[in-house]
Design a protein around this nucleic acid. Structure first.
Lengths: 189, 189
DNA sequence: TCTCCTTAGAGACGATGCGTCTCTTACGGT
DNA sequence: ACCGTAAGAGACGCATCGTCTCTAAGGAGA
């Protein structure tokens, strides 16, 4: 009956991160406690604190462990509109897998995290736009950064403040009403 | 030495809200405690809890008490660009008066608040754009909502995620690179 | 002017959960 | 076979939440 087997190293770490993720899904961020994670993993709190400085770090690790790292294969559908839609859809999916409460909790407790979060997308959009320019879809690939990041930033804003699942029409509206008009007419420099 | 005068009604309430505001400025949101507010106001916690359900409500009341309610005199400079810049500048000022830490704290603890926060601007922008159309500055006042709210939403996104004072160049870039190009070319419906 | 009723002011209280400390003992390395 | 690291378990001190209790101030009404 007694399980005297002690977990170690990577095996133990995976168990801890899975327990943390499950706890996060069940209780959300504000009711996410180290005690509960430890209990769920049948271990003590010290085992957690030996690896992560605090709640926030454990939650971030758990999310990364579950969802993998940031997207680095850039969509290439051969079509600007679909490329951007694909990016936005990925962001929405990712956001929905954790929910707004968790994101707000992290934003409040782990302030150092957010610059990283949103500067990552610029490069992706740049590549997408340059490909579109090379195909002749738009007049130039030299688009102001403000325009490049507009759709992803607007989506992020929407996800953070309207705490509902993002409608598909939101994504198309961002692309058709805002992004495409801008890149079609944007003058270089 | 003993102050036996008891404050009452509106007078007391003002003292409590001032104490809360001072505490918020000094300690920020995460270290803002009801105990400290009560002590600063030379009263007991019950006096606070009799008026506000919890921390978040007290903080919101204190902010409203200090900064007045939302902006309802719409800028009218006779010029679309300056009108929008004025709105954005007001948002930035308001945000800076409390700082990102407080806003994130509230967003995490008072989820019901945010729809109100960001839906308020739509009407303001609508009026500004319609005036500009009436002056003949832009082809039509019938601008998609997504475009109307783009500059304020992008600014809010920036304030929430880049925890630095907003640069003046950010505001002009939002207007010149994003908003004006969109309203100049936007086709109705 | 006296009485009564609300509530200010003050602090104790139980509950929760953080992050630290301590203790025993499993188990992998040498 | 030995030893040192760290797992598993839980006690601990601290902070702070929100509730409860008590005394007496001072306004309202007779």
């Amino acid at each position: 009956m007694e399980q005297t087997q002690r977990r170690r190293g990577a095996e133990l770490e995976a168990v801890l991160l899975d327990a943390a993720w499950d706890e996060l899904m069940e209780s959300g961020y504000t009711r996410f406690t180290m005690e509960a994670v430890a209990a769920r993993a049948h271990t003590g709190k010290q085992v957690l604190y030996r690896r992560w400085k605090n709640r926030a770090e454990l939650v971030i690790s758990a999310m990364r462990h579950r969802n993998g790292s940031i997207i680095e294969d850039i969509p290439d559908t051969g079509n600007l509109r679909d490329d951007v839609l694909a990016i936005l859809q990925r962001m929405a999916d990712r956001f929905e897998s954790v929910g707004p409460e968790v994101v707000h909790g992290l934003l409040a407790e782990a302030p150092d995290l957010d610059p990283e979060v949103y500067s990552r997308m610029t490069g992706v959009m740049e590549t997408i736009v340059q490909r579109a320019a090379a195909r002749g879809e738009i007049p130039t690939g030299d688009v102001p950064e403000r325009v490049l990041t507009a759709p992803t930033n607007l989506l992020r804003h929407e996800m953070l403040l309207a705490r509902e699942p993002v409608a598909a029409s939101t994504l198309t509206s961002l692309v058709d009403d805002v992004f495409l008009p801008l890149v079609r007419t944007s003058a270089p420099h």
